[in-house]
Design a protein around this nucleic acid. Structure first.
Lengths: 347, 347
DNA sequence: TTTAGCACTCATGTTTGCAGAGTGCTAAGA
DNA sequence: TCTTAGCACTCTGCAAACATGAGTGCTAAA
């Protein structure tokens, strides 16, 4: 595969742009007129023919314009997409919105999803950051009716988990508070392994509660925990590639299946794909995702690397506005990372 | 408007059923063959003509079959829909699923949404029950970095709210615990009004925290609080009424706008519409919802009436499987009511 | 009151033809 | 060697013309 000339790169970029905008195959004459190019359509035709031969473009049929292939998009993303930054005004507006909402993680995630969906004109996926290694911070046990007890568990990082427990026998609030107090003193700052080591130390109520704490900790540290914030579904519906057959809507079905969605989000970093400075780009499912054969997915992480990270994602047709989507993701990622680290419970 | 004969009711019901199944105008011959009726198609035609004249049916065009009108659906729901109950086997399966999941409200809501979406083949909407009158139960203050403090507020009813506070100046964990302890003792069981009355009693840190507690209580009691669990969006996409023009997808857009969605759910009980034993039926937006002109919405509440209630909803095309959807809602409502009251924090 | 028969209507599907967009190729010009 | 004007060719999209058939309303007889 020979290196492309500057002009060929330029034309490839134009085709990608134009196709993203119009969703219609782009022809040589059209390009010349639209961009007032300094060359004739015949020249463009020659270059288009070359790019087609190289596998970056294809023709839906003999006398149609060109459409980028998967390879074309990959080339575009990895080599032609210059590092665009969001305009200052946009950046300002976005961060303003974030600082205006209450300091609530769920609210931030919703806002991030909304902004990302708007900017990318596709579906956005956001998961709240969560700690890689969960550590116990504080426990609260609250008696309710009969043998039911509400357990509120605060973890380092500010995550709060609640759960209803059913005890073997009714226990008074005093006993519960006592148990909680003992455990709070002795479990503080411990991680799952350390807790497991301590298990033998306890008996009776304390032991049961410790079991539940560990269970909850385990649940919290599994990546499937936590909600996925979705926005912009309707963006996809207006796109022609999703209004066709039943088959065309498989990506949308994927979004409704929590488990598949989680798998997809988990594939960040694992898969090593076209990487555009921190943002991973999966084009056409990359062989692993049959449902996404027609789609592109952008993924990136935010938060404190290695400590507590969340995910930002975009799912849309292959003719995504990559530039804008990626720069928005980068910006949101750093913005959220700041917000999160500011409000994170100290070590 | 004259009373319909039994046969006319029967035929109207058949048309509603058949149209719900096939989404195609139903004709006289088709009905006779499909249901092996003991009369000729001409007889059916006469009845169809009558029902059309009465406004219960209409013809898309001269030589097409009949389609129910809004009035037709209303008549069907309010007078022809016999009280169907979900088959025992289905009921068993569903409740089994509920008792298998962890006793976690969010998990239950998700499951309810999933079940309801499946059964109704439409979009389901579920909101967690929340107390009408919020009452303070327990408060926890946890120091984090600098002047940031995590406040965990437990309310009667088992609702837990968390929020990050920014204090005027850094305060030690001891001071925070002291403040929390004082407030816990004195605020226990108080509602928003009682708290407001106590405000003057406090000063310094305690006073600030009380302010925040009140703010949070206020937020919690507004109906906009809490998430809306959605499921089954893709069900709608396969329906022909939503695959047409951009306009046909307005109901789907509605689902992405939190505020409109909330308004819709809030309209339970307020609007007095075709009411099928506890389940409200809004057909064609009932004049208030322009976006829903082509849709039907079913709404019902569950939980402890007057104390803590959540909402179950279904949104779909007018040709909803009303029988199944409504009986599923009734069943889920009573199931969830039981679950909720079992695990609710005592009075 | 029911129903067979019939004329009528109108959406749907198919064929046909045409205009237009876009191509590749060739040969002339820079 | 690269560019470009010119041209023949291909294929889609669209519209008109036409046949098909589903479904109706009406009438008249059972």
């Amino acid at each position: 595969m020979t290196e492309l000339t500057e002009r060929q790169k330029f034309i490839l970029a134009l085709v990608v742009h134009e196709y993203a905008r119009t969703a219609a195959p782009v022809g040589s004459n059209y390009l010349v007129n639209q961009y007032h190019l300094e060359m004739s359509s015949a020249t463009i035709r020659n270059e288009l023919a070359f790019l087609t031969e190289q596998g970056y473009l294809r023709q839906p049929h003999t006398s149609a314009g060109r459409v980028p292939t998967e390879e074309g998009y990959r080339y575009f993303v990895s080599r032609l997409l210059q590092d665009t930054t969001l305009p200052e005004a946009v950046r300002h507006t976005i961060s303003h919105q974030f600082y205006q909402t209450s300091q609530d993680m769920a609210e931030w995630m919703r806002l991030a999803a909304s902004v990302l969906a708007h900017q990318s004109r596709a579906v956005s996926l956001v998961t709240a950051p969560h700690m890689r290694q969960m550590r116990f911070k504080h426990l609260e046990l609250i008696a309710t009716r009969g043998r039911q007890v509400l357990m509120v568990l605060v973890l380092y990082g500010g995550e709060v988990r609640q759960r209803m427990l059913t005890l073997a026998e009714a226990v008074s609030q005093e006993q519960l508070s006592g148990s909680a107090h003992r455990l709070n003193v002795e479990l503080a700052d411990k991680d799952l392994n350390s807790l497991a080591a301590l298990r033998a130390t306890y008996q009776g109520l304390d032991c049961d509660v410790l079991e539940w704490v560990m269970e909850e900790l385990k649940g919290a540290s599994s990546s499937a925990a936590g909600e996925v914030y979705l926005d912009g579904m309707t963006n996809l519906l207006s796109e022609p590639e999703f209004s066709g057959s039943e088959d065309a809507r498989r990506p949308l079905r994927l979004l409704e299946e929590r488990s598949s969605l989680q798998d997809l989000l988990d594939s960040v970093v694992l898969t090593n794909t076209s990487n555009s400075a921190g943002v991973q780009v999966l084009i056409g499912g990359e062989g692993n995702w049959d449902e996404l054969r027609q789609c592109s997915v952008l993924l990136t992480r935010f938060g404190a690397p290695g400590l507590a990270t969340g995910t930002l994602g975009v799912l849309g047709p292959m003719r995504l506005p990559y530039g804008r989507a990626i720069s928005t993701m980068r910006f949101l990622s750093s913005l959220l990372s700041d917000l999160v680290s500011e409000t994170m419970v100290d070590e």
